[in-house]
Amino acid sequence: MAHSHDDHHKVPADVALRVKALETALTRRGYINPDTLEAIIDTYEHKVGPQNGARVIARAWNDPDFKSRLLDNASSAVGELGFGGIIEGTDVTVVENRPGLHNMVVCTLCSCYPWALLGLPPGWYKSFAYRSRAVSEPRSVLAEFGVELSPDVEVRVWDSTAELRYLVMPQRPEGTEDQDEAALAQLVTRNGMIGTALL
């Protein structure tokens, strides 16, 4: 037997359909331009990504003066390589891994991430598991990434609660003394710059 219509909640339409309807309405109102949306999507799919951060780290490994500027004021130093922008990650801090200290980055409250240097965050970074556990049990989180650290190494977790964005400078792999910046940049991974991988 059929229920009366009043008993039924309205079921929202499929999310893709709702998004399309919203975009069309806002476009007709004049608030957005679909070409701009294409440009934004193209930028974050193809142009901005971990390759930016990797260039910064490789430069720092190979150029002690740059490294010192980077650790002192990363926002200004990354501008030397043409990175920055005003979208997200204008105020950047680079934290350096060294023997005895391992840094890792999280945003427990949302999913703040240094877009300008790493692009948009991977799924695991946005997961509730990472957001909840990175601050309270960083070593078991790292173990899930295959990173086992000695208890003698300090794990320092950076919870991005403000507009400062953190990037980890991994330790330079041994045996890379002769490699140039371009070759070094190939070694720097996204997870390495969030602190969930060693290089």
Binding site: K10, P12, A13, D14, L17, R18, K20, A21, T24, A25, T27, R28, R29, G30, Y31, I32, N33, D35, T36, E38, A39, I40, T43, K47, V48, S75, S76, V78, G79, E80, G82, F83, G84, G85, I86, I87, T90, D91, A116
Partner: peptide, 30 residues
């Protein structure tokens, strides 16, 4: 409900596509 509503133009100025690169690239020297 997944439908496009009837709307009137608001006379708003949408962000133009050529701005995107500027926003992303401009080193701010913050």
């Amino acid at each position: 409900a997944g439908h496009v509503p009837e709307v009137e133009p608001a006379g708003a100025e949408a962000l133009p596509p050529e701005i995107v690169q500027v926003l992303v690239d401009a080193p701010t020297g913050y």
